[in-house]
C-alpha cells in the first residue's frame, strides 16, 4: 500500500497532539507501519504547530513534504491556508472555521486574509469546514475542539465509532471523559 499522509495543524496549545496520538494507535492496531512526527518546545507557545501522521506498508520519512498530504486536519482557518502546498492534487482540508489572530494581526502589522475557505476551494481543494469551537462549547468546554475535530476526521476512516471512543477512553482523564466523548460525537454527526 502506498503511504498515506495526514497533517494535523493548528495553534500551539489547541491540543493537536492528542488527535495524532489516537490516530497513530488505531492505525498501528490495523497492522500498518506508522510514523507520527510532532513538535515540542518553543513553537508550542501559541505558534503555528504541525504534526505529521503517516501509514502504509513501509514508512520512511517521519515528515510529510510538499505535495504529499492526502489530508490536512486544521484546528484553525489560517493554519489550513498556510499549508495547502503540502496537499496532493485533489487533497482534502478538514478545517475548524474558527479564526485565531496571530500576533502580527493582533498588533495591526498584518491583516487576517478574507474568504480563505472559498479561496482554498478555488484551488480544487476539497474543503470540509465546521465550527468546532461552538460544538466544543456545546459539549461543555472550548478546550474540547480537538475531540470535535477528531470526530469529524473519523468520518473519513473505516474505524468504528466504538474503536475511536475506546481509544479516547484510554487517553483522556476520567474526569473529562464524558465531555470529550460528547465532543467527539458532535464532530462525528456534524
Amino acid at each position: 500500500m502506498e503511504t498515506k499522509n495526514i497533517m494535523i495543524v493548528g495553534v500551539g496549545g489547541q491540543g493537536t497532539l492528542l488527535a495524532s496520538k489516537l490516530l497513530g494507535r488505531l492505525l498501528l492496531g490495523r497492522g500498518y507501519d506508522v510514523k507520527v512526527s510532532e513538535v515540542h518546545g518553543m513553537s508550542q507557545r501559541g505558534g503555528s504547530v504541525v504534526t505529521y501522521v503517516r501509514w502504509g506498508d513501509r514508512v520512511y520519512s517521519p515528515i510529510i513534504d510538499k505535495g504529499q498530504a492526502d489530508c490536512i486536519l486544521s484546528f484553525e482557518l489560517l493554519e489550513a491556508a498556510r499549508y495547502t502546498e503540502f496537499l496532493k492534487p485533489g487533497g482534502r482540508v478538514i478545517v475548524n472555521s474558527q479564526q485565531i489572530n496571530p500576533m502580527p494581526v493582533v498588533a495591526g502589522m498584518a491583516a487576517y486574509p478574507e474568504k480563505l475557505e472559498e479561496k482554498m476551494k478555488a484551488l480544487g481543494i476539497d474543503v470540509d469546514a465546521l465550527d468546532a469551537l461552538s460544538l466544543a462549547e456545546e459539549a461543555g468546554s472550548s478546550k474540547a475542539v480537538n475531540l470535535v475535530l477528531m470526530g469529524r476526521l473519523a468520518k473519513y476512516f473505516d474505524f468504528t465509532k466504538e474503536e475511536w471512543q475506546d481509544a479516547i477512553g484510554r487517553s483522556v482523564p476520567p474526569k473529562f471523559l464524558e465531555m470529550n466523548q460528547k465532543a467527539f460525537e458532535l464532530g462525528w454527526s456534524a
Binding site: 507557545r45 501559541g46 505558534g47 496537499l87 500576533m103 486574509p113 480563505l116
Partner: peptide, 20 residues
Amino acid sequence: TVQPGAALEETIPARPPVMC
C-alpha cells in the same frame, strides 16, 4: 522532480510563538 501542491496567492501572516 517533485510536485508541490497549489499555494494560495495570498500573504499568510506568520504565527510566531508568543507568551501565553
